[in-house]
């Protein structure tokens, strides 16, 4: 059997200790090892943002991040946004504003917006566009996604 490296992570508040082959990506760790399939793969090249998760609060493309690169860090996925079923204001705003269609880019979109608001609770219009603009959505034309993020940034609950 190939080499396995011991690693530990905190994922959505839970601590994991495991041994993983060095080629395991963060996305594979989440989806294949832990069954956290809310994080999606689309372009596989770190361009589209469907696989975005937070690493210590910073948005990261998990498809091009190796698991060992984030050992010891705190990772938040879409499954971790609503602890105990209490939805994050962003999740509610996405529904209210009609910002979801097929839903495949949605976890990445919500996470990148979460990353933005964590670092910058009062983002400018430009900063919202910049955050949303780093992920790709094919269904919505972005209009309602931007609306939803703006609404939360402006304090709508």
């Amino acid at each position: 059997m190939a080499t396995r490296i011991p690693m530990s992570f905190t994922i959505n508040g839970d601590r994991y200790e495991m041994e993983l082959p060095p080629q395991r990506t963060l996305l594979e760790l989440l989806r294949d090892e832990l069954g956290l399939t809310g994080t999606k793969e689309s372009c596989g090249a770190g361009i589209c943002g469907a696989c975005t998760v937070l690493v210590d609060g910073q948005p990261v493309s998990s498809c091009i991040k190796m698991a060992f690169q984030v050992k010891g860090r705190e990772i938040t996925t879409i499954e971790g946004l609503a602890p105990g079923g209490q939805l994050d204001p962003l999740q509610e705003a996405f529904v209210r504003h009609g910002a979801i269609q097929c839903g495949y880019c949605t976890p990445g979109m919500i996470i990148i917006a979460k990353g933005l608001l964590l670092q910058n609770p009062y983002p400018s219009e430009e900063e919202i566009y910049e955050a949303v603009g780093s992920n790709i959505c094919r269904c919505t034309g972005y209009v309602k996604i931007v609306e939803a993020v703006r609404a939360v940034a402006r304090g709508e609950r």
Binding site: E41, E79, L81, Q91, I100, G103, T106
Partner: peptide, 19 residues
């Protein structure tokens, strides 16, 4: 009407074939 599909899609519970 708000979409009934959305609850599963915003929480990562959507089930696509790859999942």
């Amino acid at each position: 009407i708000k979409r009934r599909e959305d609850r599963r899609l915003i929480t990562g519970e959507g089930a696509y074939v790859a999942d």
